[in-house]
Design a binder for these strands. Structure first.
Lengths: 238, 238
DNA sequence: CATTCACTCGTACGCCGTACGATAGAGTCT
DNA sequence: AGACTCTATCGTACGGCGTACGAGTGAATG
């Protein structure tokens, strides 16, 4: 699944040089393009949820027939891949000249990552079964570079990257499991309160009710970065 | 989605006391029951993957009509919930009398958690959108209890639990994104090698090719536990 | 015997992803 | 000009899905 042979259905549409009449599309009736498809898919996912994206609906929105999409895209799976990656693009922080501390850099990127995914809740549930897109890899690369420059030993690098990565992933995915919609937020809270009763320690700490997600995220990140930070006497891993 | 009103379709079947003829079912033709449904669903998921589970197939396997399932189960979603939770049961370690160190205890539970999910790869991709079942909550409770007894301050407890939790979640989910099947494992490796070329730091560290997942998991866990461990002078969170 | 339950299942509806092949227009070559 | 190719669109149809609905069955109960 993760690896696709470049299938016959998808030669790239090269824009034939000649744009339509004027320099800009007026409105709704532009021609199909990968960009428009992906943008509308994201929109659909945002508003209708993960089951709301169907090829027919997507095509309708674009004023096209369902099968027209398949000239630009191999399958619905591909639409998911593209939508996911498109939502995870990272704009570097404004780089105001002053060199950032590596730690701030890492935190910024990871908090932004988390924010991106929370802005599009479907992305968290998609991630586990999708391939790595360029934006995802770009973030990994950046993370690796930052840590490496900060002096993290090569031998520790991969473990460090994956630790941070996993943490962010898990935090986002977990967060997404709670209070998905606002409709039943109250009901969910009640349910969690009921559930808690059978789990005394959890209840006492209000684990399921505490909703300072952002703070918890940041604190865990600090735990990890403390562990990863270079030039500590790391002899006994136990 | 996460919260269901207990819908009308699912009164619990109470076994009417009188078992069939003998004490044990002979073979294939037992009657439907929640246990059999869930067990077969897990089997189907294990062998056919997440798309391989359909209500019709599941019913066939059980020698029943598709709609018969719906007397025991509200919907296909419920089957997913049940299958997921059933796979995540935790058997406490043999408790050989000697008191375990809390750290060993936590590590055991979390490594077991990860192992469970890797044994059933579909579980990782299901987790993000499913409700909390009793086995999942049981593990959280145990984690909370262990940390609390180990002396983690109440104020740090939730952050600690969620950190560990998120980490395990993310590690499992990420792991699942790679080399899903053995069919295309070679192809996947090649693809990753190609990809790496555009991401120099990643390539240098062989991030995507390194396959010591278990080791990386353990090392990250140690990072975190170092950060969480009680009685450290934790004044400056920065 | 009548009624109620616990349980099973056949049929049917509306939706899905997409294989296939028929277009239509624009560009290119002779 | 005519023939041909390439890009792009789309209508139809197929097989499969989840599940609403309601009819059926056999045992327990009154």
């Amino acid at each position: 699944m993760a690896v696709k042979r470049s299938s016959p259905g998808s030669r790239k549409p090269r824009r034939t040089g000649v744009s339509p009449k004027s320099g800009q599309e007026p409105a709704g009736e532009a021609s199909l393009s990968l960009e428009r498809i992906v943008a509308n898919a994201v929109d659909l996912l945002d508003t209708q949820g993960i089951d709301g994206l169907t090829m027919r609906r997507l095509a309708d929105r674009l004023g096209a027939g369902a099968m027209s999409l398949y000239w630009h895209v191999d399958s619905k799976e591909a639409v998911f891949d593209l939508a996911l990656d498109s939502v995870l693009a990272y704009r570097e922080p404004a780089q105001t000249g002053k060199a950032q501390h590596w730690r701030a850099d890492v935190i910024h990127m990871l908090e932004d990552w988390r924010a991106c995914m929370l802005r599009h809740p479907w992305s968290a549930s998609l991630l586990p079964r999708r391939a790595l897109g360029p934006n995802i890899l770009g973030r990994l690369e950046r993370l690796a570079r930052t840590l490496s420059r900060a002096g993290v030993a090569d031998a520790d690098l991969n473990a460090g990257i994956w630790s941070l990565w996993n943490y962010v992933m898990g935090a986002t995915v977990t967060r997404g499991s709670f209070d998905r919609s606002d409709d039943d937020r109250a009901a969910a809270q009640q349910r969690l309160r009921d559930l808690s009763q059978h789990y005394p320690t959890i209840e006492r700490s209000r684990l399921l009710l505490d909703d300072d997600w952002d703070g918890a995220f940041r604190r865990g990140l600090d735990f990890l970065l403390d562990g990863i930070a270079p030039r500590r006497s790391k002899a006994q891993p136990r």
